[in-house]
Nucleic acid binder design. Structure first.
Length: 572
RNA sequence: CGGUGAGUGGCGCAGCUUGGUAGCGCACUUGGUUUGGGUCCAAGGGGUCGUAGGUUCAAAUCCUAUCUCACCGACCA
């Protein structure tokens, strides 16, 4: 490819709205352009990358026994009514009407369509298991599209759906998909982790997320320093820190005027936040004989609302009590609430339950207790896992401590069970001739998001540093002042032809630009290898090779260039 | 949806307070210059100032309404 016949579309400045590196670089390197909020056009260079990612995903899916299909983006509303998601999905589901005023949706996902397909096409246990996938455009009317392609409304997803007679078959395919996903991210060349994810409202379901590690990630991932344990912080189990301590002090009341937050109280009393407990008042579940439930955490810990919502005493969805309702119910302001003599059910986090002689609110304004102890000063309570894990916590599998890093979610695999198949009555006849509802798994990869995540993980001050496997071009030819030097032009054209003949993806910068412009553009676009042709080295029949990722430079004889680059590519 | 801010050539912005010829940098075109790291000079093309209404002799500027977009919060590939 020659730049003169291509749309290179690089820019010096990035748009004001671009916040994260990948977004800025995708605009500057000419990969994408925004059409409207959350809607992007993929320019030639961006599309080349996208297609490479998709090709790797497709290849690994095929190898793992999945079969490619393609389903419509526009889906009839009645399908969504049959699964119950027409109401349940919410405003993220873009609803449209056709000319006959019939309701349709732009597909945010395809469980309904695939389940309806399999229901009609598959009727015997002999046809199972079956794993179907597509790589296709999805539309989710995100509340807040963000970070360019990272969270856009229209995006490309690889979604696979597997169908099984029983759970053990589902588990097998699930493991196979887990492995396929690892293969995919390894081949693309990303640093990633499969992590245990929140299993959501579907009871007993197993789920893993795949995260690309990057500082700009929106998710916190907890890892064990010495085992393979990894989980999303929102679902990582927090175990008690340390052994249960015996109490040595007795309850004393202290005045804490103007001290409301844990920090202020701890400072005032000159104790650490770890020696305090904080008491949060939350809405109780409907079948509980109280309006509110108190949740007690160690002062330095944060409540995990997902865990809280799953507790039988706590309302789901989770809701904090308002300041007014707390004052009405307990007659004390929010800063002085504590578990001692509190008139409501009390749930204590595991780590708060092992400390002794702690500081807590005295349920009277501007007063706190010191020297409080469980079982002595508070007798009615239960213990549960309610907090977010923090760095340094013991790993829940008992090996090592936890470390927390940021991740970008690029894949999610899920054992769905029969949620959709039973709602839509999708089943087959078993060996014994009985109708049986199928078990399902679903497996998603954000193909467009991978492109952004790859940039987040691989860039420098000059631009993108593509992993070899997804680079838009393998090699750039950069001739110095070609239009003034017939012999440079000759070598450049020859190398271009040679690369093409060898099947190497080459971008030949034949623009009449100054060298600096070409260097900057090629580095911005992030082409892994480049060949610089200048008068300087041509006397020795040599050109300069430069590696974008390692910065390595060396002189090559003209006749060995193609072999060298081919070799360098294979080596990575 | 809540909070904050912004809409002026393709991009980045100034001008608005105090109404009076729409401006700068990048990009683009032409000519020259330069040529191993975004050269320099000159000439040029391109803008209903988000939209609608109002005030006024006169509105990018003041007033009203409206739309769009971005950033911070709860969701997700």
């Amino acid at each position: 490819m020659r730049t003169s016949e291509y749309l290179i579309a690089t820019q010096k400045e990035s748009p004001a709205e671009a916040e994260i590196v990948s977004h800025k670089l995708m605009i500057r390197a000419g990969l994408v352009r925004k059409l409207a909020s959350g809607l992007y056009t993929w320019l030639p260079t961006g599309l080349r990358v996208l297609n490479k990612v998709a090709a790797i995903v497709r290849d690994e899916m095929n190898k793992a026994g999945a079969i490619e299909i393609s389903m419509p983006v526009v889906q009839p509303a009645d399908l969504w009514e049959s699964s119950g998601r027409w109401e349940a999905y919410g405003p993220e589901l873009l609803r449209i009407k056709d000319r006959h005023k019939r309701d349709f949706v732009l597909g945010p996902t395809h469980e309904e369509v695939i389940t309806s397909l399999v229901k009609n096409e598959v009727s015997s246990y002999k046809q199972l298991p079956l794993n179907l996938y597509q790589i296709q455009t999805k539309f989710r009317d995100e509340v807040r599209p963000r970070f360019g392609i990272m969270r856009s409304r229209e995006f490309i997803m690889k979604d696979a759906y597997s169908f099984h007679l029983d759970m053990s078959s589902l588990e097998q395919t699930y493991q196979r998909m887990h492995q396929a996903y690892c293969n995919i991210f390894e081949r693309i060349g990303l640093e990633f982790r499969p992590v245990i994810a929140d299993s959501g409202s579907i009871g007993g379901a197993v789920s893993h997320e795949f995260h690309v590690l990057a500082a700009s990630g929106e998710d916190d991932i907890a890892f064990s320093t010495s085992s393979g344990f990894a989980a999303n912080v929102e679902s990582a189990e927090a175990i008690a820190v340390g052994e249960k301590q015996p109490g040595t002090q007795s309850l004393e009341t202290v005045e804490t005027l103007n001290a409301k937050t844990i920090e202020e109280v701890a400072n005032l009393l000159d104790v650490s936040a770890q020696q305090c407990v904080k008491t949060l008042i939350v809405k109780a579940a409907e079948d509980v004989n109280a309006n509110f439930v108190a949740v007690v955490l160690r002062g330095d810990h944060q409540l995990n609302e997902i865990k809280a919502a799953k507790h039988p005493l706590i309302a789901s969805p989770f809701e904090m009590a308002s300041e007014e309702s707390i004052e009405q119910t307990f007659g004390v302001s929010i800063g002085s609430i504590g578990p001692v003599n509190l008139e409501c059910p009390i749930i204590v986090d595991r780590s708060a339950a092992v400390i002794a002689d702690f500081v807590c609110g005295a349920n009277k304004n501007d007063l706190h207790f010191t020297g409080a102890n469980w079982d002595k000063d508070v007798t009615e309570y239960e213990v549960a896992d309610l907090r977010n894990v923090v760095a340094g916590d013991p790993s829940p599998d008992g090996e090592g401590t936890l470390e927390i890093r940021k991740g970008i979610e690029v894949g999610h695999i899920f054992q769905l069970g029969d949620k959709y198949s039973s709602a839509m009555n999708c089943g087959v006849l078993t060996e014994s001739g009985k109708h049986q509802v199928l078990q399902m798994g679903c497996y998603g990869i954000g193909v467009t998001r991978i492109v952004a995540a790859a940039i987040e993980q691989n860039h420098d001050d000059y631009g993108i540093k593509w992993p070899e496997a997804i680079a838009p071009f393998t090699v750039a030819i950069i001739p110095m002042n070609m239009h003034k030097s017939p012999r440079i032009s000759e070598v450049a054209h020859k190398l271009h032809a040679d690369f093409l003949a060898s099947g190497v993806e080459v971008l030949f910068d034949d623009r009449k630009e100054r060298p600096g412009v070409m260097f900057n553009d090629m580095e911005l676009i992030g082409i892994p290898h480049s060949i610089v042709i200048g008068e300087r080295n041509l006397d020795n029949q040599q050109v300069e090779y430069k590696n974008r990722n390692t910065g390595e430079k060396q002189l090559l004889n003209i006749d060995e260039v193609v072999a060298f680059v081919t070799n360098a590519t294979g080596a990575n």
